[in-house]
């Protein structure tokens, strides 16, 4: 009888500790999103994304904002950590891109952070190159 009770107490304490740890690390101090590991919600072309933003910015925001998306298009500009697809989609990388990729067609995954009116571009951050299509 007594032994059963002790086992029960141990089990309850263990459960509480795991729940506590889970709450602490999995919720309260969960690390920020890692886009490179996320599965994209949308996979579209750069032209489609920019036409969506040009025709109805609000609707496009509700569709794409803060989502992980995959964009396919031709690279029209390349700097240290930035690729610009079809002159309209700005992709910021966390790591520098060393390869020369200009004028090539690629698929980039990143988080859509919104529309930049100063340069009329859609901005993505935390990008990674998913594949080169050539």
């Amino acid at each position: 009888m007594k032994r059963k009770r002790i086992t029960l107490i141990i089990v309850v304490v263990l459960l509480l500790v795991t729940a506590g740890l889970y709450f602490y690390y999995g919720f309260l101090f969960k690390e920020a999103r890692n886009i490179a590991w996320e599965v994209p919600d949308f996979s579209i072309t750069a032209t489609k994304l920019s036409s969506d933003y040009n025709s109805n910015p609000q609707k496009a925001d509700s569709l794409y904002l803060n989502k992980t998306i995959e964009i396919t298009g031709e690279i029209t500009r390349q700097t240290d950590s930035v690729l610009i697809l079809e002159n309209t989609v700005f992709c910021l990388f966390t790591q520098k891109t060393n390869e020369k990729l200009i004028n090539k067609s690629v698929t980039v995954k990143g988080k859509c952070i919104g529309y930049d009116e100063l340069f009329q571009e859609i901005k993505l951050d935390q990008c990674t190159i998913n594949k080169q299509n050539n």
């Binding site: 690390e31 920020a32 999103r33 919104g114 930049d116 100063l118 951050d125």
Partner: peptide, 22 residues
């Protein structure tokens, strides 16, 4: 001079803080 910053592009160390901020 003009500047524009997208709020969703702010990155925090902790996910929950970023969520509350947004």
């Amino acid at each position: 001079f003009a500047a524009l910053v997208l709020i969703k592009g702010f990155r925090f160390k902790v996910a929950l803080m970023e969520e509350h901020f947004n």
